[in-house]
Computed example of a mutant assay.
Amino acid sequence: MNIDALLQAETHFFQRYPGGFDDPALLPSVKKHRVEKMVAQCQEAFATTAFTHTEEVVQNWIKIVGRSSMVSLFEKPKFKDCLNSLSPQDKQQAVEALYEQLHGDAELGLNTLVTLFERHKMAKWSILSVVPAYFRPSVEVFVKPTTAKGVIAHFELDGLVYHSRPSWSFYQAYRAEIRAMKELVDVNLAPNNAAFSGFLMMSISGLK
């Protein structure tokens, strides 16, 4: 990791936005992403007790992805069509995998969803990481391909190679790097991991 690049990015960010993510200049962006609201909705929709109703979980999954500012407009309707077109057995498998991803064996959950969604060309990083990122906003990370590739290159995260096919090995390693980077900067840069990723993305693009 290039620590100097990270600390330089931190300095530039606070020069531009002295109030951090509470700075008035960033307020429109913060309101757009509505992270706190999405976190609350996600934690309610996917609490352990919610998983007794498969179809309800499926529809809530569609709603969360549809409302997320982090998922592209192009992917949202495709994901909705994908879930709605699944057979009852595949819906059950998808919901069970999501349960594992959030409440049990996260590696098993992710791998199962990759295998299932690949058949429908929906095994996308954004789709598979958005719910965990909202459900545990200070622990899990949202993997946006352009941001992940940019972070790896700009901050010289040696040994970490991005692949378009989601995998637990990459997710675990990328999450660990994000956690390590957070520990080196001001806590106000990371009210949650989505905000911290936003800071990293802005740093890569020159805080434009």
Results as ranks from 00 to 15, higher is better:
5 A>N: 02
5 A>C: 01
7 L>C: 06
8 Q>G: 10
11 T>S: 14
11 T>W: 11
13 F>R: 07
13 F>T: 08
14 F>P: 12
16 R>I: 11
18 P>M: 06
18 P>Y: 01
19 G>H: 04
22 D>A: 11
26 L>N: 07
27 L>K: 14
31 K>Y: 10
33 H>Q: 11
34 R>F: 10
35 V>F: 08
36 E>G: 02
38 M>Y: 10
39 V>P: 09
47 A>K: 07
49 T>L: 09
51 F>E: 11
51 F>M: 14
54 T>I: 15
57 V>P: 00
59 Q>S: 09
59 Q>W: 08
65 V>P: 08
66 G>F: 05
66 G>Y: 03
70 M>R: 14
71 V>D: 08
72 S>Q: 08
73 L>V: 10
77 P>N: 07
78 K>E: 07
80 K>H: 11
81 D>T: 15
84 N>W: 12
85 S>K: 11
86 L>C: 05
88 P>T: 01
91 K>M: 13
93 Q>M: 14
94 A>C: 09
99 Y>M: 00
102 L>K: 00
103 H>S: 03
104 G>F: 04
105 D>C: 06
108 L>F: 02
109 G>I: 13
110 L>V: 01
112 T>P: 02
117 F>V: 14
118 E>K: 14
124 K>I: 09
124 K>L: 12
125 W>Y: 00
132 P>H: 11
133 A>R: 08
135 F>I: 12
135 F>W: 12
136 R>Y: 12
136 R>K: 13
137 P>Y: 06
138 S>A: 13
139 V>E: 13
139 V>L: 09
141 V>M: 01
145 P>L: 04
147 T>Y: 10
152 I>N: 00
152 I>V: 02
153 A>N: 09
155 F>W: 00
156 E>Y: 08
159 G>M: 10
160 L>F: 10
169 S>R: 15
172 Q>Y: 12
174 Y>I: 03
177 E>G: 00
180 A>I: 08
180 A>W: 05
182 K>C: 11
187 V>I: 10
189 L>K: 02
191 P>Y: 11
192 N>A: 04
196 F>T: 05
199 F>L: 07
206 G>I: 12
